[in-house]
């Protein structure tokens, strides 16, 4: 049976029909064509499918689209400013070489965006705890941690 749902994705209401078993990750990628959200493990371990649900980072692979009918979702496509300029977090990742192949990056960007909203000046330990649920198989975490601190600086400068 199909369920009619509406998700507010990156500020735009999107209506679609999905079977109950449709994961939010697959709904975003296949039904809505937003392939920026990546899928790695589909059991909550790698973090690359992380999106913001009503502002909070969650695993889109561990959420059914029907459960979040009516909710606001922000994906990596929605992080850039309205004029298309990269967000402070995105710029910091580029500047610090916080990505290589980019597979894990959408998850990191969403996680870090929410982390810095909640805690604008995290300590080293808070950064490491904050990104502990995101795996990167190629860049290594040194530059990613650096990028988080750099993003905090950029956000503070631009505030």
């Amino acid at each position: 049976m199909e369920h009619e749902i509406t998700l507010i994705v990156n500020g735009v209401p999107r209506r679609t029909g999905v079977p109950a078993r449709r994961l939010l990750s697959d709904c975003l990628r296949h039904d809505l064509g937003l392939t920026g959200t990546h899928v790695g493990c589909e059991h909550g371990v790698c973090g690359c499918c992380t999106v913001l649900l009503d502002g909070r980072p969650v695993r889109s692979c561990l959420t059914f689209a029907v459960t979040v009918d009516g909710a606001e979702i922000t994906t990596v496509e929605g992080l850039a400013d309205a004029d298309g300029g990269l967000s402070a977090v995105q710029r910091a990742f580029a500047e610090c070489h916080g990505l290589q192949c980019g597979f894990c990056t959408p998850g990191f960007l969403c996680t870090v965006t929410a982390l810095l909203r909640e805690n604008p000046a995290p300590t080293e330990d808070e950064v490491i705890d904050g990104i502990s649920g995101n795996l990167c198989r190629c860049t290594g975490y040194q530059n990613i941690v650096k990028a988080v601190h750099r993003a905090a600086e950029l956000l503070a400068e631009e505030a």
Binding site: A20, R21, L23, E42, H43, G44, R59, C61, L62, T63, F64, V66, T67
Partner: peptide, 20 residues
């Protein structure tokens, strides 16, 4: 869903109905 959905994804469980 943080334990149940991984079990469904891995097909370790297959309930006919889910009560959300």
């Amino acid at each position: 869903g943080q334990s149940l959905i991984p079990m469904l994804n891995m097909r370790l469980a297959a309930p006919e109905h889910l009560v959300d």
